[in-house]
Simulated assay, not measured.
Amino acid sequence: MSSFRSEPFLWIHLAGIAALPILLQIAWIGLAVGDPLPGYWLELIFLLVIAIAPISWMQWYKPFDIFSLLFVAQRPELLTPEQLKILSLFKRPKHRFITVLGTVLMIAGLWKIYQIAPIATPAAAFLPQWRIIGLLIASLAFLASHLFLQVPLSVLGVLFTKNEQWEKTEPIPVSNIAQSFTLLGIRVRKILPTLVS
């Protein structure tokens, strides 16, 4: 019997961490556009509300369903018992600790990037120098970067599950998936080809 760690969706979403540096760089350039508002804390609150809070809330209450890619999601009723057990692992208390850790890392990253944003002014010179445009670019980039941090972190939490814990894990009922997980995209019968060992 193959290990649950060989599930392709786990590795695909773990690889998403590679997008994090690019997205943070886009956010950095966005924050270099225009002159900061007189009350810098207003900009930070805006970024926290738009970019940090939604992903933290999602991962805390309704974690991202990893059996999806881009704009398609595998229909819950077609998941295998092993995949349903994997989803159960995302609902452990450990997952919420990981969510808090990811949120703290993103807030620290936001604060640091905000401080060094003026260094990126030459790179942002090609954009219209309206602060609102820069904030919108930064907020969208931070939102995406937060997602591409939280999901791989939660996947790592699953991959480091001990075999004994895996054996004790019960599959999540299919009827609970829609209310327990965030499913994005069109529901399809299959996304990845079946791997034959």
Rank of each mutant, 00 (worst) to 15 (best):
Q74N: 09
H146L: 06
T161L: 00
V158L: 01
S6M: 14
K168V: 01
R189Y: 11
H146I: 08
N176A: 14
Y114N: 05
W111S: 14
L184G: 09
L147M: 14
S68E: 09
H13P: 05
L192N: 09
M1Q: 03
P193Q: 07
T99S: 12
I66C: 05
D35G: 11
L156Q: 10
G16A: 07
S56Q: 08
P81W: 13
R92T: 04
A19N: 10
L195S: 12
S175L: 12
Q83M: 06
A117L: 03
F9V: 06
G39D: 06
A125G: 07
I132W: 12
E170A: 00
I107K: 11
W60H: 14
Y40N: 10
I119Q: 15
A125K: 15
F181M: 07
F142V: 08
I132H: 07
K168H: 04
E7A: 06
L87T: 01
S56C: 09
L89W: 00
E43T: 04
M58T: 14
G34Y: 07
V188W: 07
I133Y: 08
F142Q: 02
I177S: 09
S2G: 09
S68V: 06
H95E: 08
A124Q: 12
F126L: 13
Y61R: 13
K168S: 03
P122A: 08
R189C: 09
A18L: 14
I107R: 11
P93I: 13
G102S: 09
A125L: 10
Y40V: 12
V104T: 15
Q115R: 15
P128Q: 14
L143C: 06
Q74G: 05
A27N: 04
L89C: 08
T80D: 15
A27Q: 02
P21E: 14
E167P: 00
P122T: 08
W130A: 09
N163P: 05
L24G: 01
L44G: 05
P173N: 13
M1I: 05
Q59N: 09
K162Y: 04
I98A: 05
I113V: 13
